[in-house]
Simulated scan of single mutants.
Amino acid sequence: MRLSSHSLIAAGLSAGLLLGAAAAGAQTLPPDHPPVPQDRVPQGDAADLPEPREPPTVTLDDLFDRLKKAKRPEAAASVSREIEARWLASGSDTVDLLMIRALTAIKAKDMALAMDLLDAIVTLKPDYVEGWNKRATLHYSRKDLGRSLADIEMTLRLEPRHYGALYGLATVFKDLGQKDKALDAYRKVLALNPQMPNVEKEIKELATEVEGRDL
């Protein structure tokens, strides 16, 4: 099979980044994964992954409890950032670096490269929630609703409380004209993150359309 100029991550990257990571016990890509020209991998400083600030004794359950009880948007946003930092932390130095580079590629609007990097991430670590979630978002930006929906479903299988994925699910259902399903998804978002912007507005508008008409 002929590889595109954007085909990504394995043999080429294994020779550098992944080889060193493997020596430290990190995962490596399967040998049949498409190779990557090293000069196509972004080297920019597009934001290191945010570090969780709360001590490990504060669990995700604790954080979600705080999120539900937050009275002000600023307090909810602070807790949300902590939750999302934990989701982003894959537990693998290799995968974390690939995620930084995928986010760099997205920022640079190199979506084909970002997709190859995210493909590599979910191959390396299929139980990494944020790999699927970020790829779902990228599929959506490319108008590929079917693949976006599949990756959202995988995200929610791994983390049913992922309010970002639920918001994405609602958006996809809305685009597909499935407004009853969109409404249900938005309500799940609100139950998890009551201060999340725009959700109440979306619920109000959809409730009028779905529940306020003769069916």
Score class of each variant (00 low, 15 high):
39 D>C: 01
40 R>V: 12
58 V>I: 11
112 A>I: 04
129 V>K: 12
24 A>G: 02
2 R>N: 08
36 V>R: 12
151 D>Q: 03
13 L>P: 00
66 R>H: 11
18 L>Q: 00
164 G>I: 11
70 A>T: 11
208 T>C: 06
201 K>G: 12
162 H>K: 04
118 L>F: 12
211 E>L: 15
41 V>G: 01
71 K>V: 06
4 S>P: 12
185 A>T: 10
2 R>G: 02
49 L>N: 06
197 P>G: 13
87 W>Q: 13
62 D>P: 04
54 E>Y: 12
201 K>Q: 14
163 Y>R: 07
215 L>Q: 13
174 K>G: 03
161 R>L: 06
172 V>C: 06
180 D>C: 08
180 D>M: 05
105 A>L: 03
34 P>A: 08
12 G>A: 08
206 L>D: 07
111 M>W: 06
210 V>R: 12
117 L>C: 03
91 G>N: 05
1 M>V: 11
135 R>Q: 13
64 F>D: 04
213 R>Y: 09
124 L>R: 05
15 A>C: 00
122 V>S: 05
172 V>K: 07
214 D>V: 13
61 D>T: 07
135 R>E: 04
119 D>P: 04
90 S>C: 08
196 M>L: 15
15 A>Y: 00
7 S>Y: 10
69 K>G: 01
134 K>V: 01
178 Q>C: 01
68 K>L: 11
18 L>V: 02
164 G>F: 10
101 R>Y: 01
201 K>H: 13
16 G>V: 02
178 Q>A: 10
171 T>V: 13
53 R>C: 06
110 D>W: 14
17 L>F: 02
133 N>G: 05
194 P>V: 09
87 W>N: 10
90 S>I: 06
163 Y>V: 01
130 E>D: 13
93 D>L: 07
136 A>K: 09
215 L>V: 11
120 A>R: 08
82 E>L: 09
41 V>T: 03
158 L>K: 10
156 L>M: 07
4 S>N: 12
128 Y>F: 15
75 A>V: 13
103 L>V: 00
115 M>Q: 13
55 P>L: 06
194 P>K: 10
120 A>L: 07
83 I>E: 05
158 L>D: 08
25 G>P: 00
3 L>K: 10
63 L>Y: 08
10 A>C: 09
125 K>T: 04
23 A>T: 01
82 E>P: 15
198 N>D: 14
